[in-house]
């Protein structure tokens, strides 16, 4: 693995009696998009805020590009860009004004191009309180990347965004990734994590329950593939018909749905059956287990543990 840009060793964060983050460790190499997933209260935001220097950890060590976020906060500011989950700006500040202000504090020229990129040009002279929630989030993202930080923290970046804005955000993340920016992404959107993240860590009750690439994580689960079949005569509607490696079968509308532990023999047997009974195939869909399926599996395992 390449040298770590972000290093977390035995990080612990407590709020009174509650242990929000419990001795977690992970490393993130340069240019990786690292997803932090977990149900509400799992410790995602606490982990991010310790890394961002907004909270003081109760234990463990943190490094971002060899800078300690707790003791060297002033050095950290130019190394990281942060889109906070819950943050705000003065209600009377104008969009172009805040871009100028924060860029000045980072010592770079104002990035008005990002205002345009985020489709905020018509609102460039609008005050913050005149922006919609989605526009405020887009502005926060533009401000987070304006000083071209090598490490970017995004906490629920697409919450409240409409579809075009979400697509634009994903394109920007891919562009930043291509430019070797290291991105830590906390999200509830599993499809987003699966699409964008090189690796993800699933947090549960302050601990890492699973870590790896989305493919690795989905492969280590129960791994049942969903096979949906629609035929002209509906010959698969009979529940007595069994196929190899099938763990569960059900009928939903015109579709017969099978959950298989071994896709190839199941599909082959279904096709052979349809050939034998002379029932023409209209639609066949094979869906591998998603990160969301695996996530729910891990959360449910955690709940029953």
């Amino acid at each position: 693995m390449a040298e770590s840009v972000v290093s977390v060793e035995a990080l612990t964060k407590r709020y009174g009696e509650l242990v929000a983050v419990d001795q977690i460790s992970f490393q993130i190499p340069q240019g990786e998009v690292f997803g932090l997933l977990g149900p509400n209260g799992a410790g995602k935001t606490s982990t991010l805020e310790c890394l961002e220097g907004l909270r003081t950890p109760d234990g463990g060590s943190l490094r971002i590009l060899d800078v300690d976020p707790v003791r060297q906060g002033h050095k950290l500011r130019d190394l990281i860009g942060v889109q906070l989950q819950s943050a705000s700006l003065p209600e009377n500040i104008r969009v172009d004004e805040v871009m100028r202000l924060f860029c000045a504090y980072h010592g770079v020229a104002p990035r008005y191009d990002l205002i345009e990129r985020m489709n905020l040009s018509p609102k460039a002279h609008a005050q913050y309180h005149e922006l919609s929630a989605g526009q405020q989030r887009r502005l926060a993202l533009a401000l987070a990347v304006a000083h071209d930080p090598p490490v970017l923290f995004l906490d629920e970046p697409t919450a409240g965004l409409d579809v075009p804005a979400r697509v634009e955000l994903h394109a920007l993340i891919r562009e930043l990734q291509a430019g070797e920016t290291t991105i830590i992404l906390a999200t509830h959107d599993m499809a987003e994590a699966e699409e964008l993240a090189d690796r993800v860590a699933i947090l549960l009750r302050g601990r890492i329950a699973a870590i790896g690439s989305p493919l690795e994580l989905t492969a280590t689960g129960a791994g049942l593939t969903k096979i949906s079949v629609r035929t002209q005569n509906g010959s698969l509607a009979d529940p007595a018909i069994q196929f190899p490696a099938t763990r569960q079968a059900l009928v939903k509308g015109e579709y017969a749905i099978y959950y298989s532990g071994d896709t190839a023999p199941t599909v082959a047997a279904i096709l052979a059956h349809l050939e034998a009974v002379g029932d023409p195939l209209l639609d066949l869909r094979v869906e591998r287990p998603s990160l969301e399926d695996r996530f729910l599996e891990i959360v449910n395992e955690g709940a029953t543990a």
Partner: peptide, 13 residues
């Protein structure tokens, strides 16, 4: 209270 100071802090103010 509104988190404005947090935004300022992360941007080096």
């Amino acid at each position: 209270e509104a988190g404005i100071l947090r935004s300022f802090k992360i941007n080096g103010v």
